[in-house]
Design a protein around this nucleic acid. Structure first.
Lengths: 172, 172
DNA sequence: AGTCTCCATGTGATTTTATAACATTTAACG
DNA sequence: CGTTAAATGTTATAAAATCACATGGAGACT
């Protein structure tokens, strides 16, 4: 009973990374990768943590901490904010989930296991979020940082705009 | 009495954009630019708005809305959140101020008048913020966006790390 | 002048997001 | 087992942001 279908009745997730794919498989695989990585690195993918990751993978869009908390409650877990925030802290700390600062929300990582500086495209119409790789140190920012002696440790790169699907709908 | 020195007793702002300069002049000039631009474009740089911009220019670091609100109250303005948020909305909307999403805070724009996609370097030790130009559409993100048909309207680029001054202090 | 309208501000209350503090349980390790 | 560390549950509170509505002030028009 790890998969609570009540939260995703029969809603189509047409745009996932702005492209269609076998989502059930995608979720399963991502969870497997996470399990394997935790086993290897001695991390504990506890039920709450796993559930939060699963929820984010299923929705495949940015969810706020309180939205996640509601889903957790539906799934029988604790319903107080720290429950969600602690799971999210673990997941983000280890790269399974990213925080979208612009939205104060969270998405499952699209490239688990790979070391990467994520960049996001956020559709302001449907809130879909696609992850790409960024190369912050290579662009003009990296050049400026080196020039003034600023040591970059982490980058936030988020582009807001309109995804192809919404552009189609709006245009036609 | 537009300049309330009580909020900046005699604290040195050694790092401004991580480099020293004549700060009083810098503040005055930036305010002049803002005045001129508002006059030209029919915008109203009202007392609250001007004060908020002045405060951000003086501090020259990221201030949260409530920190600004405290300073506004000290200066005799209204002390309820909307007062600060509305002024900030005006200032950000017209490019005089930028929001640092990572910090839920605001900084005065370092390049007022120029059309630009800002990028920020945020020191996690002293909270100093330096603004640089980013070229989001030219890097790998821009390439991906074009490839999938995502229309970028606005970008958030924020690098977190250690500024040269703090690196010196920590190292030596 | 009057007064109409629009925009900005003042203010109180509320919503949303996030953390602090502490008790309790669970898992790991000797 | 017993000890310890980590994770969870729960209450409370802090921090960030918005809503709703009343008040005031500058221009435009007559």
């Amino acid at each position: 009973m790890t998969s609570d279908s009540s939260s995703t009745p029969d809603k189509k997730h047409g745009s996932v990374g702005f492209s269609r794919h076998d989502h059930a498989l995608c979720v399963t695989q991502a969870l497997d990768v996470a399990e394997a990585r935790c086993a290897r690195d001695g991390l504990r993918l506890t039920p709450v943590r796993r559930k939060v990751l699963e929820l984010l993978l299923q929705e495949h869009r940015a969810l706020g901490a309180y939205a996640i908390l509601d889903l957790l409650r539906d799934a029988g877990f604790g319903s107080q904010p720290p429950v969600a925030y602690r799971a999210l802290e673990f997941l983000t700390e280890h790269g399974f989930v990213h925080k979208i600062e612009r939205l104060n929300a969270f998405v499952a990582c699209a490239h688990p296991g790979e070391i990467h500086a994520p960049a996001f495209m956020i559709c302001r119409l449907c809130d879909a979020v696609a992850e790409a790789h960024s190369t912050p140190a290579k662009g003009s920012l990296g050049a400026v940082a080196r020039a003034v002696g600023f040591q970059i440790e982490k980058t936030v790169v988020e582009a807001e705009g309109v995804c192809p699907e919404c552009a189609d709908k709006a245009g036609a």
